[in-house]
Every structure is written in structure tokens, then in C-alpha cells.
Design a protein around this nucleic acid. Structure first.
Ligand SMILES: [Zn+2]
Ligand SMILES: [Zn+2]
Ligand SMILES: [Zn+2]
Ligand SMILES: [Zn+2]
Lengths: 181, 181
DNA sequence: GCCAGTCCAAAGTTCACATCA
DNA sequence: GTGATGTGAACTTTGGACTGG
């Protein structure tokens, strides 16, 4: 209970610079910035030197001011050199978004269909909600749990938005640079 | 004794990268890494290119440096494309876990609506595909990029599956233990 | 137990942009 | 102002843990 709250708050903050953490990287709860910084530092065998007294402030807005102190904090926070792997094979080139006639029509259609889907879901969930209410199994008017049906709906909406966004970018990619790659 | 040691050591080493093997996968004694790599490579119909002379070192610490050479060794070691099954249809799996009247009806409805959504998407994408074809802008019959329209569809399917699964678990949770927590 | 499959945390890469020699 | 280098958000791949026939 308490520990879970504690755990949540612990995993939310970068132990090196107090920025928002994105998980456990190389042995320390950390942000993407510190993750990348540590990898680059180890890969390039950097030899940083603090211009002051190895005691610089390392937070989100100062973390790039002293590499020596940032790296020191990475190690102090538990990052291990051994977790850095050697370079991998190259991935493909990444794609750029654009928005032109053919493509945008495609996505307008997609978005429209997604809206329809959302409506369908709404209907299904609403009706179920109604049934559950009508059954009158329990009076949970003030029961905190009742919020869950709304949660279902709003979270679904969220997911949908992400899905559409994703479809947009991926689709744009494939329809536009036909001759590139 | 000696034979058992021999047998153990034989089955213990991945024939592709010399890491610890976990069994016979797709026709070759191999580790989990090479197993997964081969499955992903076949499923995604990857076309890797060696940046050197198709002679890269493939061992535990270098196996990710050249995918072309890793895949070549997979095949040389006896892995067969035919042993790769197609993705399992999670939508077809359905529940089986709950089976409770009210809940299952709710989820049946949800799943049905999701199927409808999928169909809608199919239609939208198909028709766009047709339009692009009809336009005949470029003859990319054999263009490798043409696979992307399928990618769009299959990835969408994936996303959908995830969404439904999520809705299922969340819904199940909220609908069943009404009195708990 | 074996070997297909899936899941997902934590590795990786890419690249627009910032900053510097 | 030009090219080299660093940053970190966005994205992909990997492989160990797990499920099911
Ligand atoms: Zn940080
Ligand atoms: Zn310092
Ligand atoms: Zn291997
Ligand atoms: Zn190679």
C-alpha cells in the first residue's frame, strides 16, 4: 500500500537530475537524457574534468553544465558500464511526415472511420452500463468503483487517439516517399 | 558420464552465436536470442544487407552487429523458414477466462464492435489501395515498398488486439469483483 | 518436457536542433 | 558560416519470462 505509492513516486523521478524518469536504465532510475548521456560517455570513453570542485548542481536545467559531475552522479546512482552494449547493426532511415492531397484524403477517411468506431464503442458500453444499472444488484450510487465505466470509455478514447496518430504517421510515410528509402 | 557431459555441452551451445542454447528452435540448436531473431526476420520479411563482405563474426557479443550475417548463420545452421508459424489470432482466442453471463455478454459485444471497426478499417484502406493503384503513378509492382500497405493493416490489427485485450482485462476487473476492494 | 507462440523492460538507433571550434 | 559534436525525444529491436498444445 504505502510501498506502492512510494514505489510509484520513486520511479517517476530521475535519480541523477530529478527530471521525469522513463524507467531503469543501466541500473539507475533515470530520464532519457541521462540514459543517452551515460551511453555516449561510456562508448566514447570520455574523460571529463570538472572546472570547479566536483560538486556541481545536477538538475534538469543544469545537467549539461558539467559533464564530469553528471557522469559522477550517474555512477553514484548505480549506472553500470557493463550494461552498455557494443554498437548494433544500422536500422533503416527514419521517415518524415508531410501532408499532401492523396495522403491527407486517405487519413481523413481513416479518421472518420475511427470516429465511427468510437461511437460504436460508446453505444456498446453505454447499453451495458444501462443493463447493469437496471439489474439493480447493488446500490452503488456513491461507490467509488462506479467511476470505472467512465474510465473505460475515456481510456479507450485515449488509446484510439494514439492509434489514429500512429496510423497517420505510418501511413503518411508509406504513401509519400514512394521513390525514396 | 563422459557421454553425458558431451551431450550436455553439445546441446548447451548455440550453433549460431555460441551463447547458451535453450533447445532446438526451427531446426537448429540455438539460444533464445537467435530463436527470436530468426522468427522476427522471417515474419517481417527482412532484407538485411551486410555492410562488409558477408563474413562478419557472429558470437554472443557481436551477434547484433550484422543482421545479414546472423541470419545467414541461422540458415546455415539448419533453421527453416517453414518452421515459423504465422502470428496467432488473438481476436479469435476470445475469453475462456471468465464465462460469466453478464460479463461475457459485455465483452462479446465489445469484441464484436471491434471486429466491425476492423472491417471498416479494412475497407477504407483497401479502397485507398485501389485508388493508388488506379492512379498508376508509378509501376511499383516489384517495389519492395509496396509491402507497406500490408504493414499498415497488420500493425493496425496488432494495435486493435492490444486495445481489446486491455479493455477486456480492465472491464473484467471492474465488472466481476463488485464487492471487493 | 519440448517447442511453437506472446509480452514487454531495457537494450538499441535516428535525427532535428543546439552549441561550439 | 560551416562542419563537427552533443543532446534527448521518438522510435525499433532484443531476449528472458512466460503461456499453451
Ligand atoms: Zn536525468
Ligand atoms: Zn562539476
Ligand atoms: Zn545464438
Ligand atoms: Zn556481415
Amino acid at each position: 500500500m504505502l510501498s506502492s505509492i512510494e514505489a510509484t513516486s520513486t520511479t517517476a523521478i530521475c535519480h541523477i537530475c530529478q527530471d521525469k524518469a522513463t524507467g531503469n536504465h543501466y541500473g539507475a532510475i533515470s530520464c532519457d537524457g541521462c540514459k543517452g548521456f551515460f551511453r555516449r560517455s561510456i562508448r566514447k570513453d570520455h574523460n571529463y574534468r570538472c572546472r570547479f570542485v566536483n560538486n556541481c548542481n545536477v538538475d534538469k536545467s543544469h545537467r549539461n553544465a558539467c559533464r564530469a559531475c553528471r557522469l559522477r552522479r550517474c555512477l553514484e546512482s548505480g549506472m553500470r558500464e557493463s550494461a552498455i552494449q557494443s554498437e548494433r547493426d544500422v536500422l533503416g532511415k527514419r521517415q518524415k511526415l508531410d501532408g499532401t492531397d492523396e495522403s491527407s484524403r486517405f487519413f481523413d477517411n481513416l479518421v472518420d472511420s475511427e470516429k465511427l468506431c468510437l461511437q460504436l464503442r460508446e453505444t456498446v458500453i453505454k447499453s451495458t452500463e444501462q443493463v447493469i444499472y437496471d439489474k439493480g444488484k447493488i446500490k452503488y450510487e456513491n461507490h467509488p468503483k462506479i467511476a470505472n465505466l467512465d474510465d473505460v470509455r475515456s481510456s479507450m478514447h485515449q488509446q484510439l487517439v494514439i492509434l489514429v496518430e500512429w496510423a497517420k504517421s505510418l501511413g503518411l510515410f508509406q504513401a509519400l516517399p514512394i521513390e525514396d528509402q
